[in-house]
Amino acid sequence: MRLKSVVAGLVVLAAIGAGGGLWLTAPKPLPESHWQALAAPDLGNGERIFNAGGCVSCHAAPGAEGDAKRVLSGGLALKSPFGTFHVPNISPDPKAGIGEWTLAEFGNAMKRGVGRNGEHLYPSFPYGSYARMKDQDIADLYGFMKTLPVSNNIAAPHELGFPFNIRLAVGGWKLLYFNDAPRVELAGADPQVLAGQYLVEGPGHCGECHTPRNALGGFKAGEWLAGGPNPEGEGRIPDITPGSKTMGAWSTDEIAAYLETGFTPDYDSVGGSMVDVQQNMARLKAEDRAAIAAYLKAVPVR
């Protein structure tokens, strides 16, 4: 009798634990109502956010140049320590792309990492940064992306090892690492620095490459923008804090000029995957590049 009740008790506890775990790790979209009060999209600002976010770097067809980059057909293979992610089609094609997605569905993918069917999205799509974005910027981006050309390309499914191939596991990752808090506290910072913080920590998602990660794919504490080994292959991702050996000595004007032209103060050039990023940054207004530069001078030295 006693053994039975102990076993029953354990079963109940396990069920509560599992249930609680499932609840804790369940996808948590924002309610439909959250997305209803927004103003009609400002397409100009949507294009600005599109460029700041560098959507084309991953979502255009690999090797696309010029106007072909506006076709967000997907297909790029993103290698990672967890496996290979195949970037999806996010053109407005109603079937192959996201043409039928509502603003709420788009917004919940961007800010909550939740797909159209209520599933967790992998953080290779950098919603861990986009969670910091303003709702109106999401709505403007949504409106702008509807104006882009369609593609009927369907990307290959992700090739991930166990346990990363189980989407539920992403819930555990979110529990540990997903939040919308500022990456660094910049008490009393001026408006330009705060504008830069928004662009870098939110849409620009600079930290996704420039911050080193632990074995579970979370950012290492206290190493924001400190750089590290390149998870996609050869070489290193540079430190971009004021303590950087490569660019710590650059002035804000020199950082902004690099983002505009792709040239360092001594006329070395941008390289690697930063080439695409820089080309997107070159499309921003000078004031946005200046804000990014001001923020990079204000973050803690690593």
């Binding site: 390149n230 050869e234 690697g272 080439v275």
Partner: peptide
Amino acid sequence: IGANCGACHQTYRVKR
């Protein structure tokens, strides 16, 4: 001329 710098460094140069 400058367009060549980034175009080549994108593929063939690696920061270490």
